[in-house]
Amino acid sequence: MSAEASSLPSPQGRGTQGGRAMTPILSVRDLVVTFAIREGVVTAVNGVSFDVHRGEVLGLVGESGSGKSVTGLAILGLVDAPGRIEAGSIRLEGEELIGKPERELRRLRGKRLAMIFQDPMTTLNPVLRIDTQMIEAIRAHENVSEKAARDRARQALLKVGIPSPEERLTAYPHQFSGGMRQRVAIATALLHRPAVLVADEPTTALDVTIQAQILAEVQELAAESGTAMVWITHDLSVIAGLADRIAVMYAGRIVETGAVADVLERPIHPYTAGLIGSVPSRNKRGVPLAQIPGMTPSLAKVPPACPFNPRCPRASVTCRTIMPEPTPYDGARMARCHHPLIEQAPAAA
């Protein structure tokens, strides 16, 4: 499909030192994931490209069904039938993951690649005690004594804010609150200081107070271990406080990327602007929220050319006939739009 990555400057920010770009820890290029369903073959992820650097948090946002979770699962090699990675490349510290045998992927998962989910029970085993699970997770990848592993597990629980971890270790997951369970899942995911952590809405189901605690802990841990994070959420305000860069997905494509402050303050893509306008906030109290009319298209019926055109206030004939290509903007930004909200920088060839 598109060669979006090769035409773009490499992202700045944490990834550069003295202007020289470092190799990203995670590099996704032109990723295409399809699902064979009753209606035919649908493309859930359609040419997605991004880089994440050491210690960096990339916020992946978009509406339900835009392809965020599928992108996350693809990174971990967890796309199962009827899903299929059709094309593209996913490199972990330069090493290609697509096409790796399942056995090797399993070795990477839980060690260099980790994922946390909205429902922590996706990764926790309900019938095993916490200590059994964590010790197993440590010893699966490292040759250490049971006692040493237990110590590590206790340290890890302490770090994610679980009080009296020694007692907690002997409990079962159902004896914990939702927030505690999510903490255990995070502690387990971070046991081996993974190079990459994919977090799929891990705080969405939690109270703001618990969410804030967990975000604080994750932020600290990632900074400490240099883990690169892909944080998936539909909540722009979470991204505003947590991420360094943001990638906005719509109908399987990234439609805009850039530094968080740039994107939220001066969105280029009308869809990004619409999302920002939809968030209730201080200065919009009592006035109607800007709404994006209509709803996310079903994958079986993605509108032609720019998929956002039926909902877009700026749509023109061009938008309905020609697919907008990824275009670079100042400040290592990218957007795909024929009628962007800010002036385009002179094309740097």
Binding site: G161, P163, S177, G179, M180, D207, V208, T209, I210, Q211, A212, Q213, L215, A216, Q219, D235, L236, S237, V238, A240, G241, L242, D244, V260, A261, L264, I276, V279, S281, R282
Partner: peptide, 19 residues
């Protein structure tokens, strides 16, 4: 604790403990 669009890269400080 309410995440807001306005402040950037906030340090999430926390109300200790759970309800």
């Amino acid at each position: 604790e309410v995440p807001r669009l306005e402040p950037r890269k906030k340090r999430f400080s926390a109300l200790k403990g759970e309800i």
